[in-house]
Nucleic acid binder design. Structure first.
Length: 199
DNA sequence: AGGAAGATCTACT
DNA sequence: GTAGATCTTCCTA
């Protein structure tokens, strides 16, 4: 398959909402043995620190969330309702934050993804944060992995550039209390976005 | 021990 | 499209 170029760490050293928008169109790559499972990132959400009531970091630094204060570009993975959530640590210098990957468009290894998800439906394969982690075999073992290193079992690579006008935003999905700003980003009209929402 | 959690699936209207 | 049950992990008491 085509050569994949990882993203530099500086890409992640910015405001989470900037990174969330710019991650659209990038490729999430999961390597299991020799096989590559790949998908285009089509939906993301930005999360902040203690000022964000929906963030894992809202209660201050704890053992389970301290990665959000740490080095950018690392995977931050946790479980919700038996689903693994895959995030990238992103923030400005001395900041706190992460971007949740909510949906990808399957590119490679679709048969394996279908086996992992026990479904034949391409449309429902990776259109949700819990679904995509199951399809790609992502769990807590990958917590803290450096996503800027293409030698690693999971990383994010360059993809196709997305035109600014193709990027839609909305409020985040499923959170109890949201901030005033819209922090969910997705590619307009992409069939693999987790849920279409009319605003 | 008890509960909350950024979700998913199924079974309906 | 919407409601309700339910999967597990990891927290705090």
């Amino acid at each position: 398959m085509s050569y994949r170029k990882d993203l530099p760490r500086e890409f992640y050293r910015r405001d989470p909402k900037i990174v969330a928008a710019n991650l659209l169109g990038k490729i999430l790559v999961r390597r299991i043995s020799d096989q590559l499972l790949e998908g285009i990132i089509v939906e993301t959400e930005a999360y902040y620190g203690v000022e964000d009531p929906a963030s894992r970091a809202r209660d201050g630094m704890k053992r389970y969330n301290m990665l959000m204060w740490g080095e950018v570009g690392l995977a931050f993975i946790y479980n919700v309702h038996n689903n693994w959530m895959f995030n990238v640590v992103t923030h400005e210098p001395k900041g706190v934050g992460a971007v949740l990957i909510r949906a990808i468009e399957p590119l490679n290894g679709i048969e394996t993804m279908m086996a992992n998800r026990k479904t034949r439906s391409i449309k429902n394969l990776t259109n949700g944060p819990g679904r995509l982690t199951r399809a790609l075999g992502i769990n807590k073992e990958l917590n803290c992995v450096d996503l800027t290193n293409s030698e690693n079992p999971i990383f994010i690579s360059e993809g196709k550039p997305i035109d600014e006008r193709e990027i839609c935003r909305s409020h985040r999905v499923g959170v109890k209390r949201d901030l005033d700003v819209e922090l969910r980003f997705y590619i307009r009209g992409n069939p693999f976005v987790s849920k279409t929402r009319v605003i």
